[in-house]
Amino acid sequence: MTGGVKKHYSGSGSLADRIAGALRAKGLEPSSLTPADFEAVDEFHFRGRAATLELASLMQLTAASKVLDIGAGLGGVARTLAETAGCHVTGIDLTPELCAAAAEISGWLGMSDQTEFVQGDATSLPFADGAFDAAITAHAAMNIPRKDRMYAEARRVLRPGGSFVAYDILQGEGGAMLYPAPWAAEPSISHLATPQEMRTLLQGAGFTLLKTIDSTHDSLRWLEQRTASGGTAEAVPVTAKLLFGTSYREMVQNQLRALRERRMLTCSFLCAA
């Protein structure tokens, strides 16, 4: 399974170089930008930076917080948390190319001291028990079949009372998901949980579930607005286009239909360790 996931997100060549080239083609110098400017590059979960800020407000972070971002991708969530709370964030991702690009982007933005990125498996985290004050995962668990291990590991590396937020795409009641999707070109690497399964998994891992937020309607409105100018507007994330090429247009249309028909949901779960 992990080989297929790595291949899906790897693309070809240096991802950081391709991102820099795409930005410069638009007249933008990467090192002159801010973390917020990178939203279309590194926060390609539903509702982007706005969703990250909402989740951050639930986590009640301080400058002293040590935070783990599970499935960090290009590091957008990690940098937003580090920038807004002043905390240190460690990101972990299965795909080496994403980790390398995340570290390079942090370097462009002068955030290497506040963020670090480690290649590793969410179901076997390379960190000590109780190493973090808070943890977050955004749109990562869709590729992980052993979610019980993922959430058990998240619980293990959190100190008692630490906060955990899971923001993911879930299986809805409207029928089977449509593929290709941004996280899976075909169903074999897609593993969507239902909301009830998520509650059972999180509680089974030892978390206390404090709050559940269904943001599906907001995600649909967001995606409709971003594609209103005809299929996939320029606002569609640069990185998604670089990774998936022309197939991204079909992915967007499949997501629009799946959200409208509630085949897929976007939900957040706030928990206490």
Results as ranks from 00 to 15, higher is better:
F44P: 11
V41I: 09
A140S: 09
G86N: 10
Q203C: 14
L125G: 06
P96S: 03
F127L: 07
I105P: 08
G13K: 04
E43I: 04
K66P: 10
L33Q: 04
C271Y: 05
L94I: 05
Q196F: 03
Q171T: 05
W108D: 02
A135C: 07
T115D: 09
P126Y: 08
T212M: 14
S188T: 13
E29H: 06
R49Q: 08
L270D: 03
W108L: 06
I213F: 15
T194S: 14
A181Y: 00
N254Y: 08
D42R: 00
S106I: 12
S229K: 14
Q119P: 12
L98G: 00
P96T: 05
K26Y: 00
A184L: 03
G71R: 01
R226H: 11
A102E: 09
A51Q: 14
T216L: 11
D133Q: 10
K66T: 15
A205T: 12
L170E: 04
A152T: 14
A138H: 12
S219V: 05
A141Y: 07
L94Q: 05
G120H: 01
A272W: 03
G110P: 03
L220E: 06
V157Q: 00
A258S: 15
P182D: 03
H88V: 12
R155N: 10
A50T: 09
A273Y: 01
K211A: 10
E97L: 07
E116L: 12
T52E: 02
T2D: 13
T2N: 12
D37E: 07
A128C: 04
G130T: 06
A134R: 10
G174K: 14
I92Q: 05
G230I: 06
D42C: 00
L94Y: 01
A176D: 14
G86M: 09
H45D: 01
G175F: 02
E224A: 13
D17R: 14
A184C: 02
T200G: 01
A72N: 07
A240F: 06
V252I: 11
T232V: 14
T80H: 02
E83Y: 10
L256M: 04
L178V: 00
L68A: 07
G174T: 12
G76V: 02
R221M: 14
L265Y: 10
Y179F: 15
H45A: 00
T90W: 07
T95P: 00
S247P: 02
I213D: 15
S14P: 02
S229F: 13
M59G: 05
I19T: 10
A122Q: 04
G11N: 09
R146D: 15
L53M: 09
G110Q: 03
F38N: 01
G4R: 12
S112C: 09
T2Y: 08
A101T: 06
F46S: 14
E39N: 10
P35I: 01
I19D: 13
C99N: 12
G21P: 07
G161N: 07
R155L: 00
T212R: 14
L98C: 00
S247G: 04
S57V: 04
L210H: 07
G245Y: 11
M59L: 15
F46K: 09
M1I: 09
M198P: 00
L265G: 13
L256H: 02
